[in-house]
Design a protein around this nucleic acid. Structure first.
Lengths: 217, 217
DNA sequence: TCCGGAAATTATCTTTTGTTAACGTCATTT
DNA sequence: AAATGACGTTAACAAAAGATAATTTCCGGA
């Protein structure tokens, strides 16, 4: 069901994580379980990771940035968004603890990033430079399934999003989001949810009103 | 620009392709160029491919199908769509000559397919069974980049689609589609284009009218 | 060439969304 | 305590889209 298997495990640990061992341990287990990779093979992988902390509101990746970052979220929420012609922001997706986040344009298209990645809450993550990962995978081909794993995760989620856009109305998409990630919806300002759904904040407010009024009858 | 590099090369060959050598040759060049793989390494890959021909209107993959098909389109157009609760169809995307098509659910989620893949024109493709490909990649790790390549292609396209949904209006999405793939739009019935854009055929007709009336002023 | 069915357009009406602006709420700051 | 600013809601109107049905256009088979 939830392909980001480690999420349930870590979500309830709490917001204060003092030790890095907790996160690396959970991440290590996740990678082993999902890819059948021996712990020994993961050692060089973790050797090139580093912990990154962001304050709420802090930018992780800027528009035009060329760094190739791949990170696993230990705590917090990251919002990826594009800036439109008229200047306002359009949220593409949210990622939260237990999930991976990647600078898509730099990693899969070798372009500078069209998108901005920003923390919505205080965030802790385990970061890896994709160029270094690339080198590591060249030497140790047993780790190669990891790359496919990341890509498959992101593709599966992207296709679900597209399916929702072509098969559901904005109201249905909101209900679906509430059902599947209600906890996340409640941690994020509505205006970001609205733009993820492809509508304005005003329209989302009306959708909410319609849902509530129908629910009470 | 166009990551599906072979397209321009093949798109103008014409609809009558008698020899399979043409397609395999073009595909081989594409794979070599984009992944730096030696021709010798590709031989076992092509040994497990087969040519598949579909008539216009013929179904390639049914809902609930569990086969893991990956194919390169030599000629024709394939439409992937979902069936909604109310019974009508929602087109997720189109693929045409020079592109790859994959049964996403069976390959990346190991589920039976939620989507239906159907030929809109007479179609010729080079098909490979993903399970066999999996085995091949286990033995020959030098081919492993191919898997990442397919996944990256599909992910890049999916993210562009999502970006269009959150940043553009239906009219703007239609104009963008016309600009980037106008030739394909003209080969496909409008009703499929409409559902790809997330609107009804009636609404697309009005969008077209608005565009034309503005253009003549 | 004619015919029948599918596709596209048009019309009518309802519903939803966009736009802009005003208003209330809440948290933070001063 | 007052001021500030961000956020969500509400209002009013315009624009666009959905639903349904009628009409026209287009296209492939007889």
């Amino acid at each position: 069901m939830n392909l980001f298997g480690a999420r349930g495990k870590n979500a309830n640990i709490g917001s204060k994580m003092s030790s890095m061992a907790v996160s690396i341990d959970a991440l290590q287990q996740l990678l082993q379980q999902l890819n059948g990779i021996a712990a020994a093979d993961l050692t060089p992988l973790f050797a090139i990771t580093r912990q990154v902390k962001l304050e709420a509101g802090e930018t992780y990746i800027r528009e035009g940035d060329t760094s190739r970052k791949l990170a696993w979220l230990q705590q917090g929420i990251i919002r990826a968004y594009a800036v439109r012609h008229n200047g306002d922001e359009a949220t593409l997706f949210l990622r939260w603890e237990g999930q991976f986040i990647a600078s898509h344009d730099t990693i899969i298209r070798q372009q500078s990033s069209r998108f901005i990645y920003r923390a919505l809450e205080d965030t802790v993550m385990v970061e890896i430079d994709y160029n270094q990962l690339d080198g590591l995978l060249r030497d140790n081909t047993r780790l190669e399934p990891l790359r496919s794993y990341f890509l498959q995760m992101m593709l599966a989620e992207a296709l679900d999003t597209i399916e929702a856009f072509v098969t559901l109305s904005p109201e249905e998409r909101y209900l679906q989001l509430l059902e599947s990630r209600g906890d996340i919806v409640n941690r994020v300002p509505d205006k970001y949810i609205a733009s993820m759904l492809g509508v304005t904040p005003v329209s989302l407010s009306r959708i909410r009103k319609r849902i509530h009024s129908r629910g009470k009858q």
